[in-house]
Computed example of a mutant assay.
Amino acid sequence: MTSFTSPLPPVQSPPQSAVRLADVSRTYGSGRTQVTALDAVSLSLAPGSFTAIMGPSGSGKSTFLHCAAGLDRPTRGSVWLGDTEISALKPKARTLFRRDHIGFVFQAYNLMAALTVEQNVTLPLLLAGRRADRAHLDHVLDAVGLADKRGRRPAEMSGGQQQRVAIARALITRPHAVFADEPTGALDSRTGRQVLDLLRHTTTDLGQTIVMVTHDPVAAAHADRVLFLADGRLVGRMDSPSAAAVADHMTHLGEW
């Protein structure tokens, strides 16, 4: 008698890209007043990578972040986070996807003053109607150096500690990627360096994908690579950057 066995389901390999933009353009206005903020940008960022985005004022850095993170929809092209084309999602679905799968760290910490560290960190889970995994929460708080400060409120903490809370909040949902917009802009140089070291740590030790928009060559030097924007277009890339090399390249971009 011949026996038959059901075929095993195919093994799903992890996505080759954590973040992928394909021919992404974003324009505002129409006719003579139309402005092209992004112009046919294509790139692919690997999982667990730390990428800095730099460019002169008006180069399209903020528009890039908004489109890549699903805060805005491109006029043309597609944006993928993992296996999901977020640019094809309707606004409500895109909002829910951001909440569950994307982390954000901004220059302003955006913490709730009445909440403790632990409550601020777990707020995204509360809004999603999900319970915190205590082991993961402990792991995240320990990773950002706040394990002994979970009961404090923002007013009782330094700026650097508050930014650590914001980073922990971004990590708590196990996001596909964390987008950081000038995360050290409000910090002194020493505290800023500590925060950048922490972001570096999240990629090397936690495998987290980080995309950081910055104007600071020293901040950019903490990344694996720097991508340069000018007039809405990708115009250069630097791997294993140094602050001096980034600053020199930015000088030439200002003249470009």
Results as ranks from 00 to 15, higher is better:
Met1Arg: 09
Thr2Pro: 15
Pro9Trp: 13
Pro10Asp: 03
Val11Thr: 10
Ser13Trp: 01
Ser17Tyr: 01
Ser17Thr: 04
Val24Tyr: 00
Ser25Gly: 11
Tyr28Pro: 09
Tyr28Asp: 05
Gly29Thr: 11
Arg32Tyr: 09
Val35Ile: 07
Val35Trp: 01
Asp39Pro: 00
Asp39Gln: 11
Ser42Tyr: 00
Ser42Cys: 03
Leu43Glu: 02
Leu43Gln: 06
Ser44Trp: 06
Ser44Ile: 06
Leu45Thr: 09
Phe50Val: 09
Ala52Glu: 12
Pro56Glu: 08
Ser57Thr: 13
Gly58Tyr: 00
Gly60Phe: 05
His66Glu: 11
His66Trp: 01
Ala68Phe: 03
Ala69Gln: 02
Asp72Phe: 08
Arg73Cys: 06
Arg76Ile: 00
Gly77Asn: 08
Trp80Met: 08
Leu81Ala: 15
Asp83Asn: 15
Asp83Pro: 05
Thr84Ile: 13
Thr84Leu: 04
Ile86Trp: 13
Ile86Thr: 08
Ser87Pro: 08
Leu89Tyr: 14
Pro91Trp: 10
Pro91Glu: 12
Lys92His: 12
Leu96Glu: 14
Phe104Met: 02
Phe104Cys: 03
Phe106Lys: 02
Gln107Ser: 15
Tyr109Ile: 06
Tyr109Asn: 09
Leu111Tyr: 08
Thr116Asn: 10
Thr116Val: 02
Val117Ile: 04
Val121Phe: 11
Pro124Glu: 13
Arg131Met: 07
Ala132Trp: 12
Ala135Glu: 15
Asp142Ser: 11
Ala143Gln: 10
Val144Asp: 10
Leu146Cys: 03
Leu146Ala: 01
Lys149Asp: 12
Arg153Trp: 06
Glu156Ile: 00
Val165Thr: 02
Val165Tyr: 05
Ala166Tyr: 02
Ile172Leu: 07
Val178His: 10
Val178Leu: 14
Val178Arg: 12
Phe179Glu: 02
Phe179Thr: 03
Glu182Cys: 05
Gly185Lys: 08
Gly185Arg: 12
Asp188Tyr: 02
Arg190Asp: 11
Gln194Asn: 12
Asp197Ser: 06
His201Ala: 14
His201Ser: 15
His201Met: 05
Thr204Pro: 00
Leu206Met: 13
Gly207Lys: 03
Gln208Met: 15
Val213Phe: 10
Asp216Phe: 14
Pro217Trp: 12
Pro217Ile: 09
Val218Arg: 07
Ala221Met: 09
His222Val: 03
Arg225Cys: 07
Leu227Tyr: 01
Gly232Pro: 07
Arg237Lys: 11
Arg237Trp: 01
Arg237Cys: 10
Asp239Asn: 09
Thr251Pro: 02
Leu253Phe: 08
Glu255Gln: 15
Trp256Lys: 04
